[in-house]
Structures are given as C-alpha cells and as structure tokens.
Amino acid sequence: MFQTMTEDELVEQLVRATDDWICTAAPEDLLKVLIGGGLDASMVDLGDEITVFIELGDRRGLLSSVGILGGDLPADEALALYAQAWGASEPPADDRAQQAWLASDGIAQEAARQHLLAAVEENIDLFVAVAAQWLRQRSGAA
C-alpha cells in the first residue's frame, strides 16, 4: 500500500528530476529554457510510488521562468552577454543559428547547463510550491 510521501521527499525528487533533465537535455531544449523558459513538472501517483517528470512545456507554471537569461533584455542580447561571461564564442543573432551554435560550442553548452543547475538551487522555493500544490490537490481528490 502507498506510504505518504512528505513534501520534502517530493521536493527532493523534483530537484533530482530537474537536474537530470538539465544534464541530458538536447542543446535546442536548453536554449528554449534559457531564452523563453518553459520547464514543467508532472507527478504521477502509481499507488506505491510517485514518479516525477520534468519536461519542456508551453504552459506557464511555477517552474516555467527558472533559468531564463537576462530579465528585461531581448533574448539575443542576453544570450550574447552570458556567452561573453562564460568565455564562449559569440552566438549568432538568428534563432536557428543559435541552436547550432549551442550544439557546437562545448563551453557555452556546459555553462548553460551550469547556469540552469544553479537556477534550480536559487529557486528551491518554487519547487516547494509545486510539491505543496500537488500534495494538496492529491489529498483533496482522495
């Protein structure tokens, strides 16, 4: 029978799943998150365990802004500033060319992953909110 998962345990699973996603995501997906955000979490209660999925989504949720570069700057300007700070080559202005750039520039790709991993740690409160919201909804449905 299912044992109740604590909020802390669910947050730990969410963070681990997000870190795994960041470490294995394709360069074009990393770029999407850096420029426009879009991380999304799904939790599935399988009766004896909860499985957590992190994916790139279009829906605006609590995690969708994690890791976006530059705040108020246009995306191409923010990307260029970050690339310079990372010691990477200069990214092209064209969106499609930026995907190829990130795929081919190992320094930029590793720095982008590190930026996103740090953003997860800096935004733990959002992961806590996601876990709390899901647990409330789940207990309300029971």
Rank of each mutant, 00 (worst) to 15 (best):
V52G: 04
E77H: 15
A41P: 00
A41W: 01
D40E: 15
D94F: 06
E49T: 09
S64L: 02
L46K: 14
G37W: 09
E90W: 11
G36W: 14
L79F: 08
D48R: 07
V66E: 00
P92W: 14
E55K: 10
G87A: 06
M43Q: 07
Q98C: 03
D45P: 04
G47H: 02
M43N: 06
S42L: 13
D58R: 14
G67R: 05
R60N: 11
E55D: 12
V52L: 03
L69W: 07
A85R: 09
S64F: 05
S64T: 05
W86G: 06
G71T: 04
D48Q: 10
G71I: 04
G61T: 03
E49G: 00
E55R: 11
D48E: 11
E49L: 11
V52N: 02
G61N: 11
A93L: 10
V66W: 04
S42M: 12
P74H: 15
G47L: 05
D40Y: 12
V66A: 03
E77Q: 14
S64A: 01
G37D: 06
A78R: 05
S65A: 12
S89V: 00
M43H: 00
W86F: 09
L46D: 14
S64D: 08
G37E: 03
G67A: 08
V44Q: 09
G71R: 07
E90H: 10
G36I: 02
